[in-house]
Design a protein around this nucleic acid. Sequence first.
RNA 1: GGCCCCAUCGUCUAGUCUGGCCUAGGACACCAGGUUUUCAUCCUGGCGACAGGGGUUCAAAUCCCCUUGGGGUCACCA
Length: 485
Amino acid sequence: MTTRVRFAPSPTGSLHIGGARTALFNWAFARHTGGRFVLRVEDTDPERSKPEHETAILEGLRWLGLDWDEGPDVGGPFGPYRQSERFDRYRDVAASLAAHSYRCYCSAERLTELREAQKAAGETPRYDGRCRDLAAAEGDSHVLRFRVPEGETSLDDLIRGRVTFSNAEVDDWIMVRADGSPTYNFVVVCDDSAMEITHVLRGEEHLTNTPKQVLLYRALGIEPPAFAHFPLMLGKDKKKLSKRTGDTALQDYRDKGFPPEAVVNFLALQGWALDDKTDVFSTEELVRNFDVGGVSKAGAVFDPDKFLWMAGEYVRADDVERLADRCAPHLVAAGRATADELAAGGARREWYLNAVRLVQERISLYSELPGKLAWVFAPDDEVAYDEKAVANARKHDGAVLADYLDWLRPRLAGGVDAAALRDATRAWVKERGLKFPALFQPLRCALTGEAGGPDLFDAMALLGADGSLARIERGIVRLGGEASG
RNA sequence: GGCCCCAUCGUCUAGUCUGGCCUAGGACACCAGGUUUUCAUCCUGGCGACAGGGGUUCAAAUCCCCUUGGGGUCACCA
C-alpha cells in the first residue's frame, strides 16, 4: 500500500512556523515511505479565507523545498486542492448521511444563550439536543447536525497509543451551516477519504476533533485512516506558540535571512531527533530516517538562540557562490550595490565573493552581511569609527601608523598581495621591537573603524591600494589629535 | 470547570515500548581556558536533569497507582 498524507492549511493568515513543521513531517513521511504528499487548502470559510494568504503559504512551502505531488489540474506543476472548489461533493455526502444526521432549527442566538447559561451554571457547554427528534420542520433555516451515537470512540494514535473518548463528551456537531456551507470536521473526512489519505498527521490541537471524525467515518462505512498528533510548538511561556512570544510566521524567518535548510533542520528537531548526538543533518538524512512513531509526545519550547546557532551552522558551511547569491538581495536592499554587479558574471562579482569570504564565519543570517560589510562600502574619508576601536588605537604611539604608512606606500604600488604583505608587516613590527597590537589596533581603526573584524591584509586587498592608503592617511589625522606617547 | 494529552539539565533532546550496558549521553545558552593582529570561527574543560510519593522486582529514568505541575480543547473558525 502506498502511503498518502496531506497538509491542509487554512488560508486565513500566513504560514505559521508550527504549521510549517506539520507540513515538513508530513512531507518527510511521504518521502521516506515512497508515498504521496497532497496539499489541500481548507478554505470553507469565505469570510476569513484570502487568496493572498494561500499564495504566501505556497511560497513558504516551496521555500522550504516541500513539494507536493498532485492537484486538481492535469500534468503539473500542480496547484493545491481547494475545498471551495469541491462543495458539490460535500453536498452529496451530506445527503447520503440522513440516517446519521438531523436538521436543527435552533437559531444562533438560542445556541449562544444556551452556552452562556451552561457556563454560568458551571456546566460544560454543549448542544442540548432539542431538535434531535423533531417530528416536523420548523422553518427553512436549519443546520445539519451529526447524530452522535451512545458508547465510546477510540483511536490508535501512532505517537500516543490508544486514546478513548466517551461519546457523551462529543457534541452533536454541525456538519452543514444554515447557508449550506460545510464545516471543517465534515469536509476533512469527506476529503481525506476521497483522496484516500492513509495517515492523518497533524498537530495535537486536533486530537479532540478526532472522535468526531472517526464517528463520521464509521457512519460512512469507511475504515478511518491512521492518526498521529504531533506535540505543539510552545513559546517561552510554555503555551502554544503565538505572536506574543516571538515571530511565528515562517515569512518572518525568510525575511530575516535564515537559510531554508537551517529552518528545515531546526523544525525537524522540534519533536524529533536523528539519533543521540546529531543536531545538524541534511534534509536527505531527515527523509532517510524519519519515523512518525519516533516523534515525542511532549511539547517543544521554541528556542530562538538555538535557531540562530543553527542558521550560523548553515551559513558557515555554505558554498561561497551560493552564500553570495543569497546575501545579495540584502545588500541591494541596503542600497550598497545593484543586483547586476553582484550577480554571477557581474562587474563586481569576484570582488564581492572576496568580501563574502571575509565575513562568512562572522554572520549567522544573510541579512547580517550588509552590516558586517558596512565599513567596506563607506567612503574612504568617512569611515565610521567605533568608540572602542578608537580607544584601542589611542593606547598606542601614534607615530607607528605614520611610519608604517611611509613603509607601506611604495609596497602597494603593484596592488595588494595580502599574504606577502602580512609576512612583511610582521617582520616590520618585530624589527622595531613592537608588539603586534601597537600597529594593528590603529591600523584596524583606520581601515575599518571597528574593534574587531577580518584579517587586515585581506581587508586591504578588498579595499585596494588607493583605498587602503587613503584610509590610513585619514586615520593618522583623525586618531592623531589625542594620541598619547 | 468537563474531557483529553503530557512530564529527563534553563531550553531542544537520547535513553522509556523490549527493566540491568545510565555513577543518565549529545546540542543550544552560560562560565573558564587555548588558538588568533582583534572579532568571529575552532578546540578543551566546567556548570546542569530522571517533578513528588507509593508500589512491582534481585534490579526502575524505564512497568503500575496516586499526587502535583503544565498544555490542548470545549463555535453555524479551522
